[in-house]
Design a protein around this nucleic acid. Structure first.
Lengths: 216, 216
DNA sequence: TTGACAACATACCCGGTAGTATGTTCCTCT
DNA sequence: AGAGGAACATACTACCGGGTATGTTGTCAA
């Protein structure tokens, strides 16, 4: 009791920091974001952030991890469901895209995290952390890869390279990350419409027949 | 004569700098790239760069502009051709994707330039330059937009929002920018195969019938 | 009551980087 | 020949930002 009572506010404090950090990292990018920026965004000072995270990189990695966790939480229940492969593919792609829109700042950090790994300019320790996080991302992508290959086996999807197609699919589904700017009065209907168009585009790209796409 | 004889080597020097800068900006991103990095990549020092460009931002903008110029040069002849809308769409998308792969470092700078504009963290003068460059990019995109809308009118393409669809199409065609790493022995056949898969994915996404896509 | 610790804020250090000011070399034109 | 300038290199400054060391306040347990 005393534990959860003390841990919960702490958790709340942490998440508040993560939210602010994700927002700043999205707004200016990792390199161009200073810890003071994040602190200002919080109405606090460096002290608060460095009390919870050992370095700027650590903070960034925490945002990355949180973003991936959100994705797993959204997709896992669908992936386990015993339903037709087409329905599963539609549900997963649409859900993923909605998650991208709803947790945009975190997902932008995931994106930049992947890029940070590709460009190798980090310390060995940071690299280790990034590699582990990247494994999370790969595991997540592989959930989709399995479904894709199953769909190909069943003659529903048509493509050459699994890797390239996976990239293409995610690029389409993730694209709102880069051009969608939530204005003040952004209602659920609009968001659903955007996610729908992205999903339709991706499913078509995968070679699904039009009648299998209709109502996403 | 004396003019071209003196200007040409100068131009050569400039392009060498642009190449190195584009490479560095791609490798580490704009903010994380120092002028010294670019100079080291050139086997030179800051002096050489600041002799030709007034600031880091100026250098970056020059790369951006050069990248867009390459795109226009590749697409313009196709856009003016009097051919069927399907053939035009196929030729333009494929050519664009090939350009992305072949001028990758420059195009990554174009991409980051767009992001730099969206996140507003620049001085007013830099912002003016970015806005002008962004107009170049918009003009370029509008060439495709016209073809897209024509294709929709003719019942060849099917989509809701022009803007969103344009984003989706470019995300697919541009995607090699982010996952393609040219290894030492990268032959033309491989590159063409990659561009082909991206183009097919995009054209399908636009709702083109399968028989109109076959041989891209 | 008090002391111990969490959760911050404040003040400071120091390395890296954009930009500048000043050489140095070579080339060209007269 | 030599004067002038283009094309760099060298040396320096000023500042920003990551990280740390230390102070302050509230809270809870004994």
């Amino acid at each position: 009791m005393s534990v959860s009572a003390t841990v919960n506010p702490a958790r709340h404090g942490q998440e508040e920091i993560l939210d602010a950090a994700a927002q700043c990292f999205m707004d200016r990018g990792y390199a161009a974001t200073s810890i003071d920026d994040v602190a200002r965004n919080l109405g606090a000072t460096k002290g608060r952030i460095y009390h919870h995270y050992r370095s700027k990189a650590d903070l960034f990695f925490a945002v990355y991890r949180q973003g991936m966790q959100m994705n797993f939480d959204a997709i896992a229940p669908l992936a386990e469901q015993k339903i037709g492969i087409v329905e599963k593919l539609r549900a997963m792609t649409k859900t993923h895209t909605l998650a991208m829109i709803r947790t945009q700042p975190y997902q932008r950090c995931v994106w930049e995290g992947v890029e940070l790994l590709l460009r190798g300019s980090t310390t060995p320790q940071q690299r280790d952390a990034l590699v582990e996080l990247h494994k999370m991302r790969t595991d997540y992508a592989n959930i989709f890869r399995d479904v894709l290959e199953q769909a190909k086996l069943e003659g529903i999807a048509h493509y050459q390279s699994s890797s390239i197609t996976l990239h293409l699919m995610f690029m389409s589904l993730n694209s709102p990350l880069f051009w969608f700017q939530p204005s003040h009065g952004v209602d659920e209907k609009t968001i659903d419409g955007i996610a729908s168009q992205c999903t339709v585009f991706a499913l078509r790209g995968l070679g699904l027949k039009e009648e299998l796409i209709a109502d996403v």
